[in-house]
Design a protein around this nucleic acid. Structure first.
Lengths: 106, 106
DNA sequence: CCAACTAATAGCCATTCGGTTATATGTCCT
DNA sequence: AGGACATATAACCGAATGGCTATTAGTTGG
């Protein structure tokens, strides 16, 4: 579960998550475009992109003097799987409780 | 999307996420039991539980002098929905690119 | 060739955060 | 009643974090 740590941590910061959201919804963007929209300095954006890249959430390809970043939505899969697993276990327990209550009713 | 901020932030800390995982997999636990397993001090655990409760991920019911905490797995739904939405948008764009490439092939 | 432009890095700072110990509050048991 | 126990809160501390400005490196176009 160590891989999940960087994934969840990356998405834990609102600004960073918004950058990722924007890339998902609007498609690949230059750092410049992302900066204008984020309302923070260009170096701050670049630092966030490094973190997102470290989690596999984003990939950047250089084209000339600018770099195009694109979301890698597949990187979200471990997150969904984790959530499903947690929910599944939780529901199993709920079912057991339900059974217990039914047995107590009778 | 402001509600998601606290949710993602709560899960962003590994220790905290592990507490939640434990409650999901093992069922409700006292603070004492959680503390023994977490390997940190009892106040630290209590603080994490406050944060998790703030995100709706956990609920505590006092019973005598101890408090039983239980996971609220339903609180994960916004997270899954968010991930689905991001993936959906991303795939739409991918399809468009796919179409474009097909058109270019012909 | 050089000035403008784009992005990344370095260095700095204030704040946040996760941990600690000490203490308060409340409950149980003898 | 009083001591042990369970949890929450307060106060504090060092490390991590997210932001900034300044600078560097690389690219383009006149």
């Amino acid at each position: 579960m160590l891989q999940n740590d960087t994934l969840f941590k990356s998405l834990g910061d609102p600004t960073r998550r918004r950058l990722f959201e924007h890339l998902c919804l609007e498609g690949e963007q230059t750092v410049r475009a992302l900066t204008e929209r984020a309302g923070i300095s260009q170096p701050a954006v670049s630092k966030h992109l490094v973190v997102l890249k470290g989690a596999g959430l984003v990939a950047g390809q250089q084209r000339g003097r600018e770099t195009l970043y694109a979301a890698q939505a597949g990187a979200l899969r471990p997150l969904v799987e984790w959530a499903d697993e947690m929910t599944r276990f939780w529901e199993v327990r709920f079912d057991r409780l339900d059974d217990l209550l039914k047995r107590m009713d009778q």
